[in-house]
């Protein structure tokens, strides 16, 4: 097993958001500022890492007929822990992300990795896989939110970049999420075709 390949596939060739089109809901909803996007990415990475470890450790104990409910309970447990931790330590981010923190539990990336990778591999590759996928997802979120924040609010991480009357408010409103993600996906297709 090539561990380096397992790590990089989540970031580039199998990027969960841009290539596999998983986890679209948070990617569109919370990417109004880089800060929120980064926070969401870190939260998802944490849950993904923890659930991949537990699923991989218990893969011989869980009967295959009830594996999906079992995975969901494992994931929901870690989401609840994350929810409480964020409530206690990052209250501002907790309010900004709102309902999308409990909704990490239905993020297809996490269940997808548990089912297609962690339940079939030993713990080390599962950890590497979770880290790669998590970082890939976080980078993608940061990219989308950077585009939206710079164009929509004229700021980056709260830092004023553009004069106040230039930004196009639409980019941080709901339609902006669709526009930004659609254009990034289109550009990526174009870019990949050229290199191939």
């Amino acid at each position: 097993m090539n561990l380096q390949k397992e790590f990089t596939k989540g970031i580039v060739s199998d990027n969960p958001l841009f290539r596999l089109l998983l986890g679209m809901c948070p990617a569109l909803a919370v990417t109004t500022s880089v800060n929120n996007g980064l926070g969401m990415g870190v939260a998802v990475t944490g849950v993904l890492l923890a659930s991949n470890i537990v699923v991989s450790a218990m893969r011989k104990v869980i009967p295959s007929s009830v594996r999906i409910p079992a995975f969901i309970v494992i994931i929901a447990t870690f989401v609840t822990i994350t929810d409480m931790l964020m409530h206690a330590f990052t209250p501002a981010l907790y309010t900004a992300l709102g309902i999308f923190i409990p909704l990490i539990v239905v993020n297809c990336i996490i269940l997808g990795r548990a089912e297609s990778f962690a339940s079939r591999n030993t713990m080390l590759p599962a950890i590497i896989d979770a880290l790669g996928m998590g970082i890939g997802f976080t980078l993608a979120l940061v990219m989308v939110s950077a585009v939206r924040e710079v164009l929509g609010a004229g700021t980056f991480f709260g830092l004023q970049l553009l004069p106040e009357n230039i930004p196009a408010l639409i980019m941080i409103l709901p339609p902006g999420g669709f526009i930004a993600l659609g254009c990034i996906l289109g550009l990526m297709n174009k870019f990949q075709r050229k290199t191939a």
């Binding site: 089109l21 669709f178 996906l185 297709n189 075709r193």
Partner: peptide, 23 residues
């Protein structure tokens, strides 16, 4: 549709336009 926009990208743009009208 331009080749690189086919499939999901154009669907997202359509969704954006629908979202604007729902605004």
């Amino acid at each position: 549709i331009p080749e690189s926009m086919r499939g999901t990208p154009i669907a997202l743009i359509v969704a954006a336009l629908m979202s604007i009208s729902f605004l």
